[in-house]
Design a protein around this nucleic acid. Structure first.
Lengths: 356, 356
DNA sequence: GGGGTTGTTTTTAACGTTAATATCAGCCGG
DNA sequence: CCGGCTGATATTAACGTTAAAAACAACCCC
């Protein structure tokens, strides 16, 4: 016989609470909590009854209450950067999407963080967010040598994982990265296989560990084939810079016939240079970029480039964080993924009718 | 004389609470709360003392506790879509950045929402999120005629604002949008001013209200000048489709000399078509796109296009939400912003040395 | 000087959850 | 049949905040 307590009835705003489920199942609130969080503390029979009530009422635990009680919000924070206008898309869009998908899959939610430019502003923003919200973990992007953010987060004891390895060989950092060296080597191998022997490289300034890494891949491939490595440029990542560097390498006494670039932006600069000289990408000079930005597929001919396995990066980052949170005593994860060479018309001498 | 209570001292994990500030200032916790939330209920002198203590201890209110107590989390949710590979960047990247910046500015935080594809999945995701987290408001993107999401959110009584107007003339919806009609008219005016009289339009299928709106702008401009409007295509938003439509319009008995497109993706398809025919963009046929995607600035020649004032959109959306939350009894905001015509080489007959 | 008004501050209770502790029933061994 | 043990469930208290109510002081008016 069902007792019709003078209870408040179904919550007015559609919010079902533990207490309501408890009443329905004829147990205490704590038992409901246990049914969900500590199943083995309950008699199987009771548990089944409780879960039925949970299902029936559509109960979902209130995260604010949980966060308050547990000091853990199941929120993962990530800071976006403003996108720079002259650059090919930095895949932030995709990255955020897959990162969030993976986070939700694992029972977290992604919260965006905003900061004034500069590392100090970013650290302050992290600290403020932590004070206010008991964020569970952070995801960093583009870590560099001696990164202040890493030091700060570590000193606070907050779990975090980074997209981009620790360039100072710090093993205690959890990171996921893409092997730029292997990628650039693959691109260089590819153009060498087309018969090119004067292969230049247009990369970033020496300060950039990422750029340095990619350059190494080109060097690897060249040395392996005893090709000269005199054609190299270290410039800022802009269309203009790529264009100018390309002109220089085509003006050389023994000019480049292939140009391997550290980014799609630079590669598009090279394309512009060819355009200005009346040369045809692919046919006259082979070009490769890096990132597989949307632009790479849209230009004519298509730009050969390296696609980063961005969805795998997102999954692995969340996995790494999950391990950290579970207090997994094993070494923090280091995951190095291989980019995929996407061959399009810009590196092929063949007919250009079907360039995608 | 300061009483040395047997208090727990400074919080162990660096979290400062109301109670600690209260003790420091020699008042009750509630007074500290009031100092921050209801300043006029306190004696100015007391308030000053409390704020000093807040400052000194670096107190920040705990949002989880607030959310629990107030049923309001200062969180705004937004659902990302997976980006489609063949499209020029949809400015999601920028949009998210500015939306979050504006949200933080106004004291909110942006939380990302994930859903299985399709409207049903999206609505379910919203409902789940609401149950769990007392989200304050939602931001929708790409609303369409008879949008189920709008109906759902409204039926739950949750504040929300939409990037994209309500196409069914629903005045009770708060929205911010960009005037595609005016933008396309400006682009058409621009090519007409270069002397073109055979101006074609490549737009989206009739289902798309957005596409319809942009097409109207082209019609407006043509009619105003008594130009023929026979050259029009309604296709899917892909490079291929743009390319094919361009070929058709260039094969016409009196071929197009200018093509106004509903997207950069379509315009890039047109560029490919010209390329295949040995025609020069700008010199032989003028092209305009829409969106000012990164690609538009990177191709040679640069693509004339319309830049959406995305940062203003973000600010206005947050503003609209803020008004809704404040219970502002005035009509929900409708904001229609003008896109800006960005002229590059693709629509200019002039010399192509400096195409950006 | 009782009763009211105003202005300031404190007390109480509650938001929904869960760790820690308490309670209770059943069982075992002596 | 008592003390101790085990397993299942219930009770208590706390996380940090704030609305509502209560308390208190100062002042004013007839």
């Amino acid at each position: 016989m069902v007792r019709q307590h003078t209870s408040r009835g179904p919550a007015p705003h559609g919010h079902v609470t533990l207490a309501q489920v408890a009443q329905r199942a004829g147990v205490s609130a704590q038992s409901v909590s246990n049914a969900l969080n500590n199943p083995d503390r309950l008699a199987p029979e009771t548990r089944k009854r409780i879960l039925a009530a949970v299902e029936e009422l559509g109960y979902e635990p209130n995260l604010s209450a949980r966060a308050l009680r547990n000091r853990s919000s199941s929120l993962i924070a990530f800071k976006m950067r403003p996108s720079r206008p002259d650059k090919a898309s930095l895949l932030m869009d995709d990255f955020l999407y897959v990162l969030n998908a993976a986070a939700v899959e694992a029972g977290y939610h992604l919260i965006l963080c905003h900061a004034e430019d500069g590392p100090a502003g970013e650290i302050k923003a992290y600290r403020d967010l932590l004070k206010k919200t008991s964020i569970d973990a952070f995801v960093l992007a583009e870590t560099h040598h001696n990164d202040d953010r890493v030091a700060a987060l570590r000193s606070w004891g907050v779990p975090f994982a980074s997209f981009g390895r620790s360039w100072d060989g710090d093993d205690s950092l959890a990171w996921v990265d893409v092997d730029g060296r292997a990628g650039t080597r693959a691109a260089t191998d590819h153009v060498a296989a087309q018969g090119h022997t004067r292969i230049g490289h247009i990369g970033w300034l020496a300060e950039s560990e990422l750029g340095q890494d990619r350059r190494e891949g080109w060097l690897d491939a060249c040395r392996e084939r005893d090709l000269e490595t005199d054609l190299q440029a270290a410039v800022v990542d802009s269309l203009e810079a790529g264009c100018q560097a390309a002109h220089r390498m085509l003006d050389a006494s023994r000019p480049a016939t292939a140009l391997v670039c550290a980014s799609d932006t630079l590669a598009l600069g090279v394309m512009r240079a060819l355009h200005e000289r009346g040369l045809r990408p692919g046919v006259d000079v082979a070009i490769t970029g890096y990132d597989d930005s949307p632009t790479a597929a849209l230009v004519s001919p298509g730009l050969t480039t390296l696609r980063q396995p961005i969805d795998e990066v997102g999954r692995q980052l969340i996995q790494a964080i999950d391990n950290l949170m579970a207090g997994d005593p094993r070494q923090p994860q280091h995951v190095l993924l291989e980019p995929e060479l996407v061959v399009r018309g810009s590196s092929l001498p063949g007919p250009r009718t079907h360039t995608s």
